[in-house]
Design a binder for these strands. Structure first.
Lengths: 205, 205
DNA sequence: TGTACATCAGTGAACGCGCGTTCACTGATGTAC
DNA sequence: TGTACATCAGTGAACGCGCGTTCACTGATGTAC
């Protein structure tokens, strides 16, 4: 028998899943209504307020989960790079795209709200991405050290890479498997250009 | 005395300006209502239908104007590069940011709807940007020829550059003058990395 | 263990609101002769 | 130029709808003794 607290958590989960399940290429968080989410979760509209003060509060809880997914993704990519020893760029792109597929609507939310209409959302998503950029920059510096191939402006390199990855990610979400492969190939080439460019600029200095 | 046709054009213009004027960092096209736009333009809600079948039709007309602005921007940048002879990257970034400031809400619309929730909008904006990318790729190839510094994958270079420029542009729209200068500097460095990376890869082949 | 009371997640009725859209209309502008 | 008719941009009343939010409530779960 579930305790009251457990049951409450279940309902909260149902609300968040209901909201996520409504997102799609043609449906942003901003177009959801509280009544719609409650209906989808199987509770009365008024019960919504037992869990969140307003719909945006639920959205921000989802962004937090998106942040967790990003950190998992980064750990996974590191592990694979260390284990497989292949191209770090290729492995990272493959890992990213795999996560994208497995958490489509969570990423959809992050990708949209990053440049969306609500300031709290933009701020929250940017904080998650900033954290991601910082970790990537650290990795880039570490790898550059190990390979004795110095980098110019590692932080900028990381920012540009993340921008490209996220933009292509947004495209990939609604692409066919075939298009997705093309996007991956393009993305890898673009990332390599940035990396090589940064290395070349470092040499010239 | 204005003819009937002239007056109709004026009202249409007022409707489009009214919609544009409502856009901001916290207000996307999707949150506008037909009644609100009509009110702002000074006509009855029902008169709106004399000009557009629905609100989205007005939005797509604005995207067309955004495309015109993009093409002007590109012509202007080319002219300045030819005249001033300085860094093409620097001149282009300066020109872009100037246009951004002068057509803030038009660019806001383009930047948002590029990844927005409405398929017709996404398609229209992507067509404009695709045209922009194609022209940029042509320019890059031409300059590479003139300087005898071959480029690898000019089209990809152009795509990556446009992605970075548009993303930083979205940031710049609501930044202070000081932040905007920093964004410009970062953007120039990032574009240079891509260019140099592409040149280095071309040499290695 | 049993009893009395407190807590609180979930409810259903009700509210006022702004929305998109329809309709029959008005009256100034345009046109044919 | 004057007259009779056609066009059509703009109107105001009215509609039904889904929305967020409030309120007093119910009844199962939890707690103190």
């Amino acid at each position: 028998m579930a305790t009251r607290a457990e049951q409450k958590l279940k309902t909260r989960r149902a609300l968040m899943d209901a909201a996520l399940s409504q997102l799609s290429a043609d449906r942003g968080f901003g177009s959801l209504s509280l009544r719609e989410v409650a209906r989808e979760a199987g509770i009365a509209p008024t019960s919504f307020y037992r869990h969140f003060a307003e719909l945006d509060e639920l959205g921000l809880a989802l962004v937090d989960e998106g942040g967790v997914a990003l950190r998992q993704l980064m750990r996974q990519a590191r592990k694979r790079i260390a284990r497989d020893g292949g191209s770090a760029i290729s492995t990272s792109v493959e890992t990213f795209m795999e996560y994208l597929g497995n958490n489509a609507n969570l990423f959809r939310l992050m990708l949209r709200e990053r440049t969306g209409v609500s300031k709290p959302f933009r701020t929250a998503v940017k904080a998650e991405i900033d954290h991601f950029v910082t970790e990537l920059a650290d990795d880039l510096r570490r790898i550059a050290d190990e390979q004795s191939r110095p980098l110019s402006e590692a932080r900028l390199v990381a920012e540009a890479m993340v921008t490209l990855v996220f933009n292509q990610g947004a495209e990939a979400l609604d692409a066919t498997a075939r298009e997705r492969e093309e996007l991956k190939a393009k993305l890898k080439t673009e990332l390599r250009m940035i990396l090589v460019g940064s290395q070349t600029l470092a040499k010239r200095q």
